[in-house]
Amino acid sequence: MSEQTKADYIDDVSVDEEWDAHPSQSELDEAVESLEASGFEVEVVPDAEAALDFLTEEIPAEASVMNGHSTTLEEIGFTEYLTEGDHDWENLHAEVFSIDDDQARAKARREAQTADYFLGSVNAIGREDGTLVAADLSGSRIGAYPFAAGHVVTVAGVNKITTDEDAARERLQEYAYAFENERAQEAYGVESYPSKELVFRQETVEGRTTVVLVEETLGY
Rank of each mutant, 00 (worst) to 15 (best):
A149T: 13
A149R: 02
G150S: 09
G150D: 06
G150R: 01
G150Y: 00
H151Q: 12
H151T: 00
H151D: 00
H151R: 13
V152A: 11
V152F: 04
V152K: 03
V152T: 14
V153R: 00
V153S: 00
T154G: 04
T154E: 07
V155S: 02
V155R: 00
A156P: 00
A156T: 12
A156W: 02
A156E: 04
G157W: 01
G157E: 10
G157M: 08
G157I: 08
G157N: 06
G157H: 05
V158C: 12
V158Q: 14
V158I: 13
V158D: 08
N159V: 09
N159R: 14
N159E: 04
K160W: 12
K160Q: 13
K160I: 11
T162M: 14
T162N: 11
T162E: 08
T162V: 15
T162K: 15
T162I: 15
T162A: 13
T163G: 13
D164C: 12
D164W: 13
D164P: 05
D166F: 08
D166H: 12
D166W: 05
D166Y: 10
A167N: 11
A167E: 14
A167Y: 11
A168D: 05
A168L: 05
R169M: 06
E170W: 00
R171V: 14
R171P: 03
L172F: 09
L172H: 11
L172Y: 08
L172C: 06
L172S: 06
Q173I: 04
Q173Y: 05
Q173R: 08
Y175K: 05
Y175C: 02
Y175L: 03
Y175N: 03
A176L: 05
A176K: 07
A176Q: 09
A176W: 07
Y177M: 09
A178K: 11
A178Y: 02
A178I: 01
A178R: 12
A178M: 05
F179K: 09
F179A: 05
E180F: 04
E180Q: 11
E180L: 01
N181D: 07
N181I: 08
N181P: 01
N181T: 13
R183W: 05
A184W: 07
A184G: 10
A184L: 10
A184T: 08
